[in-house]
Design a protein around this nucleic acid. Structure first.
Length: 109
DNA sequence: CAACTGACTGCTA
DNA sequence: TTAGCAGCCAGTT
């Protein structure tokens, strides 16, 4: 493939470092990587990452706490199911107490 | 070769 | 306050 996956590689690394029961946003990761305006690229990285079991893409949601990417998972509510499995409450694709489960790499790291 | 879409975000009306 | 629009990078058609 490509060796310049530094950006994507970092996305995978941060996503994998997300603590149990916590979630992060595309913007948070993008900003942490220095590409605040490239939040979409994070989503693109997740698209490829969803093939990698090592990358908990279900812990990555948009800034509203909405499970925008759940549609990309195998099942229809697989992403929501995984989040609930971690103790995160999700209703109608929206994370409850999103501010409490939000994990900021720039702040925590 | 050119244009559009896409797991988003932030600003302006 | 809520709603709408433009900007960004990369991949696909």
């Amino acid at each position: 493939m490509k060796e310049t996956d530094n950006f994507f590689e970092k996305v995978y690394a941060v996503t994998r470092l997300v603590p149990f029961g916590r979630v992060t946003t595309y913007g948070a990761i993008a900003t942490y990587l220095g590409a605040a305006r490239s939040a979409r690229m994070v989503g693109w990285a997740m698209n490829k990452a969803h093939n990698l079991e090592d990358v908990p893409a279900h812990r990555v949601v948009n800034r509203k706490g909405l499970l925008t990417g759940k549609h990309h998972f195998d099942g229809t509510n697989l992403m929501q199911q995984l989040l609930e499995n971690e103790g995160i409450k999700v209703i109608e694709n929206q994370i409850i107490d999103f501010d409490k489960v939000l994990w900021n790499p720039s702040a925590e790291l």
